[in-house]
Nucleic acid binder design. Structure first.
Lengths: 364, 364
DNA sequence: TTGAAAGCGTTACCAG
DNA sequence: CTGGTAACGCTTTCAA
């Protein structure tokens, strides 16, 4: 008997508006209006409908609704790598903002592969998303350009293209490079190396910031202290080890290094320590990203905070405003300011670890 | 003129099967069948349809399809925290498996809050997902029990309930506790502490494994060496610091500690180092999770690998088989075997860091 | 304030 | 092999 009952429940088709309408002797239209808070419904009717809705735990079939409204209440997010705390944090805060307004977030990863990214985008567009948010792995704007003219609202994060006018939320990458480099200059570094990122906007911006800072302080810029650009932002740690080894072979060697991101900086630190040198006394190291485990490393790592949480939030709010607004609004850009976080890897005055934490280094 | 063209494109309603059918002088049904690889379609017709589909970059409207098939090709994933590498990794590998079969993954976080989790589940169910995968934050099976009888296929990961018969993929938590504890015993620890996790299946299982290992080696189990259970799996690092401090106040103090997860172990290491003790010579530390940055810590951390990637993959394949199968298949359970990864925090024979890496410690 | 009718784009079911 | 017809569950429009 119990089995019978369970099977029955299971086979039962979900409640529809028709059921509710029939039960209450009103029309489907009336039910529909109540559910969308239409004005012109009698108080009495409204109450009865809502009561029945609650009783049956009714929720409207979104597929049916989408079909007629053309909106899916689904937002897509494409990131290069969900395992990277930077993108995981963005996904998290984005999802929190969107869900408050009833949107779901569907997340795809491109694995830093432009081909895979294009496939994913096409898959998502096939679902008729209401908006697409993307930290692109592409090296040119062609795919995204196509979407931005013929697709749903497009919001770029973290990476963008000079030749593509689109919604964008990201950090001021030149400021990242400048902040990091000036900090190294201030603690007394005279030969500052830069382990470059790939040839995408954050990599280029940070490089530019680095060069600007050197220029501003009238320091010579030496080509041999700048690593070759990478093809994509993968295996940063291993790349950091390798590139740093090359730098250590120089003579004279650098006394400070600014790395494109924290994983690279971690790799660089390994190379330095393995060479028997001290951080920061022989070589000071600074990264970018301010990952949550920077405090826990062999040498706690100075870094540039990228306001990750805020990027997600901003992008979320921008998306909502795009979805709420009628017509085609102008594209908007939000550039957030980075912040220097000093830890042991650039604290030259104070020796030892842990107890030397300055107020700034307490930030996560 | 250009503006006009752009607006035109933008206002253009997306292609439908009707358009293609009209263009080719065939019926909508024929087009539909071609797109779903139906047998009974002439070769010639099929070619023409496919050609036109490609020309127009047509993709079927999934909302319409869902409406009639009752399937959404959407799978939901609810995890306590996307920032935790364990869950991020699962999301990543899960998404990779599902997308190959055309499913999208929508991800929500519960922030370890059962109330929020229930809300999220209801939101997702409202979307008529094809399946729901969840690492639950609930402390009892009531909410999930409701779904498993009346909702879409339910797949539990990482955490489960003794009184709920459901699909489950996870690690053998007793083995985790036993492996870690026996390793500590083998390197000579005689007073082994355990920093407990919360009262959910992984926490309880690991505790049991710890107790079993002590019993097996005829070692006395001392209540004061086992921390109180936590309410939820949050702020593990801070908790680790605090609990370890309490353990250090004991006399005699422990000479080894098995921590519920790696963040807790990191906290514990801080407490130990701050007390002026050495790891592993005074106190050996082992965690669980084998996070990707365990190798980079102040003291590289021994840990138990939880086969995270495989959990995601298995859960993905299980989900697919549930979706593909007709009728209501029996619930299945997959228990994966954990693996010990030895690093400096338990390497007593060898002093120094880095170069002492054993083969095992090279794993990420 | 309410509701009847007409779709939305697709697939299922048969009949030809 | 092909296609007409009837859904699927909802919203929109417009008339009552």
């Amino acid at each position: 008997m119990i089995v019978g009952a369970v099977l029955y429940i299971d086979a039962m088709p979900p409640t529809t508006m028709k059921d509710i309408a029939r039960d209450l002797g009103v029309s489907v239209v009336t039910v529909s209006k109540v559910l969308r808070n239409h004005e012109d419904i009698g108080d009495e009717t409204r109450k009865r409908v809502l009561a029945r809705v609650k009783e049956l735990k009714y929720t409207p079939n979104l597929a049916a609704r989408s079909l007629v409204t053309g909106r899916t209440y689904l937002v897509g997010l494409v990131v290069p790598d969900l395992l990277h705390p930077f993108f995981a944090q963005i996904a998290k805060s984005l999802s929190a903002v969107l869900r408050k307004k009833g949107y779901c977030l569907t997340i795809s990863t491109s694995e830093e592969d432009p081909k895979l990214e294009e496939q994913e985008i096409d898959r998502l567009l096939g679902r008729r998303l209401d908006a697409l948010i993307i930290a692109t792995a592409s090296t040119n704007s062609s795919v995204l350009g196509r979407i931005s003219t013929a697709g749903p609202p497009l919001i770029l994060i973290d990476r963008r293209f000079a030749d593509l006018d689109a919604n964008y939320v990201g950090i001021d990458d030149e400021a990242v490079g400048a902040l990091a480099t000036e900090h190294l200059i201030e603690i007394g570094c005279r030969r500052i190396a830069h382990l470059r990122g790939p040839d995408i906007s954050p990599g280029l911006g940070r490089l530019k910031g680095y060069l600007n800072a050197l220029a501003k302080h009238k320091m010579e810029q030496r080509p041999e202290l700048i690593s070759k650009p990478r093809t994509a932002d993968v295996n940063s740690r291993e790349t950091g080890v390798e590139l740093m080894r090359q730098m250590l072979a120089l003579s004279p060697r650098p006394d400070g290094v600014f790395c494109y991101n924290d994983p690279m900086a971690i790799g660089a630190m390994h190379a330095i320590l393995d060479a028997g040198l001290r951080i920061p006394n022989d070589i000071a190291v600074i990264g970018s990203g301010n990952l949550h485990y920077d405090t826990e490393l062999i040498v706690p790592l100075s870094s540039i905070d990228q306001q990750t949480e805020q990027i997600g939030e901003r992008a979320g709010r921008l998306t909502l405003s795009l979805l709420e607004s009628k017509g085609q609004p102008k594209n908007r850009t939000f550039i957030l300011e980075p912040q220097l976080v000093v830890r042991a890897s650039t604290e030259r005055k104070i020796a030892g670890r842990g107890s030397s934490a300055s107020p700034a280094s307490r930030r996560r």
